[in-house]
Design a protein around this nucleic acid. Structure first.
Length: 875
RNA sequence: GGGCUCGUAGCUCAGUUGGUUAGAGCGUUCGAUUCACAUUCGAAAGGUCGGAGGUUCGAAUCCUCUCGAGCCCACCA
C-alpha cells in the first residue's frame, strides 16, 4: 500500500496523472472498453464541442469555468458508459489576432500591414500563431480537461475553411447571400472600416445649429453637422407632432446654400418631438438611423463625404473641402441669408477610432449580406423562422433546443425576432477570404478558385461568426459524410458564457438548421461571468485579474474547479476570491485525509460487491449514500452542478467523515468502509478528477476515470434508519453539549439506547457521562429489559439511558408552531369539506376535478391527524 | 425608449412546481487537541427574506405598485 503524505500536494501528482489519462487513450471515445454487462448509458453517445479559445490568448477564468463545467459533464457521462466525446479546438479570432500582430509590428519596426502587403502580413500572423497555439492548449490540459486531442480542430485549418466555402456557395446558390450597400464605421485616419467594438465614444461639447434649409422651406431643423445636410433627402418628424402634420408626404424642391435638394417630409416614430425643433434632416448616406429610414421610405441616397473625409465632387464650392471647412462655410452662408435661427452649445457623444482617435465617418460601402427573411425553397421557411422554431417549438421532427437558464430563451426570441440581415464581410486580411472571384463583369462563386486567367478574388474576409456558426458540424468532418457526424451530431450540450448568446449561439442555430436541416445541439448551458470579490469585471487596468494558472499553482486544479462550479448558478455572475478557493483547497485536503484513513484501515480489503448493513450506523450511511447517489445523478442530468457538488460536500464532510468514520473506529467493518469510500470517489471524480484518481484504490490496475458511475440501490434507502440515526446524533450532541454545561429542560422522556461509543472519547468516558446524565433532572438510568421506544444500536454495559428529548427542542415554541399549523390545516379541511358537500359543485364540475378534490380531502385529513398526534406527544 | 435580471445572516450565495422551526460556506465569539486531517474537531451568536398592498387555509416563493442595484439592445439629429 502506498504511503500518503499528511497533506495533499497537488503539484506533485497532477501532471503525471494527466499524462496517464492522455496516454490511456480514453479521452477518445472510440477507445473506451466495451463492458461485459450493460451499463446505464451504454451505446448512447454524448458530445460537446469546446467553444474554441483564441489562438493567441492565454487561459482566463472564463475559459476555466467553461472547462470545469464541460469536463464534469464529459467525465460523468463517460462513467455512465456513454461514448463521451469532447472535441477541443482553437479560434483564429480574426480581428483580435490581426490587431495584436499589427501592434507587434508597430513596436518592432513601426511598419503597418500596408507596408508589408497582404501575403507577407499573413505570414507574420502565421508565425505568431504557431508560437502561441501550444501555450493555450497546454493551459487547457492544466485544468484536467479530458478532451479528445486526436480530433482537435482550428477554425482556420483546411477542413474548416472548406466547410466555410461550401456553406457560402450553398447560401449564394439559394439566393440567401447578396451584395449590398450599408453604412459602416469608416476611419479616415486609418483608411479602414471599424467594427462596432472598435469605436470609442467621447463626450464633447459641440455647436448645435438650428436653421432653415432655405427661405421657401416651411420650418427649421437642428443639427451638429450642417455639412452632411448637403445629402439630405428628407425631413423626419414625429407622427404625433401637430406642428408638422400638414406637411407630411409633401416634397420640397429647394436650394440649400447653393446646392439644390429635394426634401420629402416623412413621419417616423423614432423622432423625439422635444429635441431641437422636433424635425430631423435625414442624411441616408452618413447616419445609420437615417439609412434605415431611407430604406423604409424608399428615399434616394446621396453620398456627400468620401473616404478621405472630404466633400465629394458635385457640391458646388464645397467639393474637395474638409468636413470642418465645409461646415464653417455653410454656417457663414446661412448667417448671411438670415436662415440661422439658433446656435447653442450642447454635450454630445462623438465616435472616434480606438486606434488613432480620428472621428469616425459613417459611410455607405459595398458588403456581403445574408438575407434572414427570404424563404428557403427546401424548407419553405426563412432562416429567422427556422432559428426561432428550433428553440420555441422544435423543428425537423420537433427536435427542440433547451436553453439553461430558461430566461435566456426570452432574450433569444427578442433578439431573433428583431434580427436584420447579417453583414458577413469584413475589411481585414486575416480570416476566411470571401470565396468570390471577379473578372471584369463576371462573378464566380465557388469552393475552389475558378479556372482561367485574370480572376481576382474579393479582398474581404468573412465575419468570424460565419465560421464559428458551423463549429458543431465542421469539427465533425462536414461536408464529408463522416461517421463522427452521424454518431455525435446534434451535439448534446453547448456550454458557454451568456455574453455570446447572440454572437455565437444564435449564429450556430441559424447556420446549422439551414445547412444540415437539424439542430446543432439539444441543450445550451450558459454560465455566468466571473467577477472579483467586489463584483467588478476583471480587467488589466483595475489590476484585479485572478489568473487561474496562479491559483492552480497555489491551491491545485481540483480546488480551483470546485470554486468555479460550486456556489454558482447558470446565467448569474459569480464573485471569486482567494479565500473561496482556499476553502475548497481545505476540502480537497479533507478528502485526502479520508483517503489516508481508509487506506490505512482497510489494508488488503477489496470491498463488497453486495452492500449489506448490520448495525444502525451502517443502515444509516448506506441509506444516505444511496439517497445522495440518486440526488446527485438527478442534479447532474439537470445541469445542477452546484447543487450536486454542495450535496456531495455536505455528505462527505458532515456525514461520512464526521459520523461514519468516527463510528468506524469502534464498529469496524473494513470491507464496507472501503466500498463506501470507492463509491464516494466515483461521485467526486467528475468534479475533482485529480485527487480522486490518486486516491483510487485500484489505481494501478484500472483508472477511476473509466469506472462505472454508482447505481442507486433503492432497497438500501431506509428512511426509518435515517430518522433513528438523527435521534442518535441529537443525543450524542446533547451529551457533548452537556459536558460544556449544556442545559436540559425537563420534559417528556424518550428511551434511547446509546450504542458503544460514538467517539473514542465517549467510550473512554462512558461511566462519567452516565453519571453526569443521572444528575440531570428527569433523567433515569434503568437496567435493560424495558422496551424502548426507539431501539437503536447496542446497549452500553447493559444500561439504557432515558434522555429528555425535549432538551433538544424548544417545547413551548414547538407547541405554538404546531397549534398554528393545526388551525390552518383545519381551516383548509373545512373549505374542502364544504366544497364536496356543495351539490352545485358536484353536479357541474368535471369528474377528474371532483376526484382530485376528494383525494385532497383525504390527504388533508391525514395531515390534520398527524399534527394532532404530534401535539399529543409533546404534552 | 425596448427587454432582462437581482435585492434572503457582517460577507458570498442556496432555497426545485406556494407547505414542518428559511439553509450553507466564509467571517465573528467560546471551547477542544498525541490516536486520518490545525488545510482539524465541537458549540454559540447572528435574518420582521428591500418596502407596501393583494391572492390563498397558508407567501421568501404567485400578482400589482414602489424603492434600490446591475446587464443587454436601440438611440444620442
Amino acid at each position: 500500500m502506498r504511503e500518503l503524505e499528511k497533506v495533499y500536494n497537488p503539484k506533485a501528482v497532477e501532471d503525471g496523472i494527466y499524462d496517464k489519462w492522455e496516454k490511456s487513450g480514453y479521452f477518445n471515445p472510440d477507445n473506451l472498453p466495451r463492458q461485459a454487462k450493460p451499463r446505464q448509458g451504454r451505446g448512447k453517445s454524448f458530445s460537446i464541442v469546446m467553444p474554441p479559445p483564441n489562438v493567441t490568448g492565454t487561459l482566463h477564468l472564463g475559459h476555466a469555468v467553461m472547462l470545469a463545467v464541460e469536463d464534469i459533464l464529459i467525465r460523468y457521462h463517460r462513467m455512465r458508459g456513454e461514448r463521451a466525446l469532447w472535441l477541443p479546438g482553437t479560434d483564429h479570432a480574426a480581428i483580435a489576432t490581426q490587431t495584436k500582430v499589427e501592434k507587434l509590428l508597430k513596436e518592432r519596426g513601426g511598419k503597418t500591414r500596408h507596408d508589408l502587403g497582404r501575403d507577407k502580413f499573413l505570414d507574420e500572423v502565421d508565425k505568431f500563431i504557431t508560437s502561441t497555439k501550444s501555450t493555450i492548449k497546454n493551459q487547457v490540459r492544466k485544468m484536467g480537461s479530458s478532451c479528445d486531442w486526436s480530433r482537435e480542430a482550428y477554425t482556420l485549418d483546411e477542413p474548416r475553411s472548406r466547410a466555410v466555402r461550401t456553406v457560402f456557395k450553398m447560401m449564394h446558390d439559394d439566393g440567401l447571400i447578396y451584395r449590398g450597400e450599408r453604412i459602416v464605421n469608416w476611419c479616415p485616419g486609418c483608411g479602414s472600416t471599424l467594427a462596432d467594438d472598435e469605436v470609442e465614444y467621447k463626450t464633447q461639447k459641440a455647436k448645435f445649429y438650428t436653421f432653415k434649409y432655405s427661405p421657401d422651406f416651411p420650418f427649421a431643423i437642428s443639427t451638429t453637422r450642417p455639412e452632411t445636410k448637403l445629402g439630405d433627402t428628407a425631413v423626419a418628424v414625429s407622427p404625433k407632432d401637430e406642428r408638422y402634420k400638414e406637411y407630411v408626404g409633401k416634397i420640397f424642391k429647394i436650394n440649400f446654400v447653393g446646392v439644390p435638394l429635394k426634401i420629402k417630409i416623412i413621419a417616423d416614430r423614432s423622432i423625439d418631438m422635444a429635441f431641437g425643433t422636433g424635425a430631423l434632416g435625414v442624411t441616408p448616406a452618413h447616419s445609420m438611423a437615417d439609412w434605415q429610414m431611407a430604406e423604409k421610405n424608399n428615399l434616394p441616397i446621396i453620398k456627400v463625404i468620401d473616404e478621405q473625409g472630404k466633400i465629394r465632387p458635385g457640391f458646388a464650392e464645397y467639393s474637395g473641402k474638409s468636413t470642418t471647412e465645409a461646415r464653417e462655410k455653410i454656417i457663414e452662408k446661412l448667417k448671411a441669408a438670415g436662415l440661422l435661427e439658433k446656435e447653442e452649445e450642447i454635450e454630445n457623444n462623438l465616435s472616434v477610432c480606438y486606434r488613432c482617435g480620428t472621428p469616425v465617418e459613417p459611410l455607405p460601402s459595398l458588403q456581403w449580406f445574408i438575407d434572414v427573411n427570404k424563404k428557403i425553397l427546401k424548407y419553405k421557411k426563412s432562416l429567422k423562422e427556422l432559428s426561432l422554431e428550433a428553440v420555441k417549438k422544435g423543428v425537423f421532427g420537433q427536435k427542440k433546443i433547451k436553453i439553461i437558464p430558461e430566461r435566456f430563451e426570452k432574450v433569444y426570441f427578442h433578439w431573433m425576432e428583431n434580427l436584420r440581415d447579417w453583414c458577413i464581410s469584413r475589411q481585414i486580411w486575416f480570416g476566411h477570404r470571401v470565396p468570390v472571384w471577379y473578372r471584369g463583369a463576371e462573378i464566380y462563386v465557388g469552393v475552389e478558385p475558378p479556372q482561367g486567367e485574370g480572376w481576382k478574388q474579393d479582398p474581404d474576409t468573412l465575419d468570424t461568426w460565419f465560421s464559428s456558426g458551423l463549429w458543431t458540424f465542421s469539427t465533425l468532418g462536414w461536408p464529408e459524410k463522416t461517421k463522427d457526424l452521424k454518431n455525435y451530431h446534434p451535439t448534446s450540450v453547448l456550454e458557454t458564457g451568456y455574453d455570446i448568446l447572440f454572437f455565437w449561439i444564435a449564429r450556430m442555430i441559424l447556420m446549422t438548421t439551414y445547412v444540415l436541416g437539424d439542430i446543432p445541439f439539444y441543450n445550451v448551458y450558459l454560465h455566468g461571468l466571473i467577477r472579483d470579490e467586489k463584483g467588478r469585471k476583471m480587467s488589466k487596468s483595475l489590476g484585479n485579474i485572478i489568473d487561474p494558472l496562479d491559483m492552480i499553482e497555489k491551491y491545485g486544479t481540483d480546488a480551483v474547479r470546485l470554486s468555479l462550479v460550486l456556489g454558482t448558478s447558470p446565467g448569474n455572475d459569480t464573485k471569486l476570491s482567494d479565500e473561496k478557493i482556499a476553502g475548497f483547497r481545505n476540502f480537497t485536503n479533507k478528502l485526502w485525509n479520508i483517503g489516508r484513513y481508509v487506506i490505512e484501515k482497510t489494508k488488503g480489503e477489496s470491498g463488497n460487491k453486495k452492500l449489506a448493513a448490520k448495525t444502525l450506523a451502517e443502515k444509516w450511511i448506506l441509506s444516505r449514500l444511496n439517497s445522495v447517489v440518486n440526488e446527485v445523478t438527478k442534479n447532474l442530468d439537470e445541469f445542477e452542478f452546484s447543487q450536486a457538488g454542495e450535496k456531495l460536500r455536505a455528505f462527505t464532510w458532515d456525514e461520512f467523515a464526521d459520523w461514519y468514520i468516527e463510528i468506524s473506529k469502534i464498529q469496524s467493518n473494513p470491507s464496507l468502509l472501503v466500498t463506501l469510500y470507492s463509491l464516494l470517489l466515483k461521485l467526486w471524480h467528475p468534479f475533482m478528477p485529480y485527487v480522486t484518481e490518486v486516491l483510487w484504490p485500484n489505481f494501478d490496475e484500472k483508472l477511476l476515470m473509466i469506472s462505472d458511475w454508482p447505481k442507486v440501490e433503492k432497497k438500501l434507502v431506509n428512511k426509518k434508519a435515517e430518522k433513528d440515526f438523527e435521534v442518535l446524533k441529537n443525543v450524542v450532541t446533547a451529551i457533548r453539549g452537556m459536558r460544556a454545561d449544556y442545559k436540559i429542560e425537563p420534559a417528556k422522556r424518550v428511551s434511547i439506547e446509546i450504542f458503544g461509543g460514538i467517539k473514542t472519547k465517549l467510550l473512554e468516558e462512558q461511566a462519567g457521562i452516565i453519571k453526569t446524565l443521572a444528575r440531570v433532572e428527569n433523567l433515569v438510568i434503568k437496567k435493560s429489559g424495558t422496551k424502548p421506544e426507539w431501539s437503536v444500536g447496542s446497549v452500553v454495559e447493559g444500561v439504557e439511558i432515558y434522555l429528555p428529548l425535549a432538551g433538544l427542542i424548544d417545547v413551548p415554541k414547538e407547541k405554538a408552531r404546531l397549534e398554528k399549523e393545526l388551525s390552518e390545516a383545519e381551516k383548509y379541511l373545512g373549505v374542502l369539506e364544504n366544497k364536496l358537500f356543495n351539490k352545485a359543485f358536484l353536479a357541474n364540475a368535471p369528474k377528474e376535478l371532483v376526484a382530485g378534490e376528494k383525494e385532497k380531502l383525504k390527504l388533508q385529513k391525514e395531515k390534520v391527524q398527524k399534527i394532532k398526534d404530534q401535539l399529543k406527544s409533546l404534552s
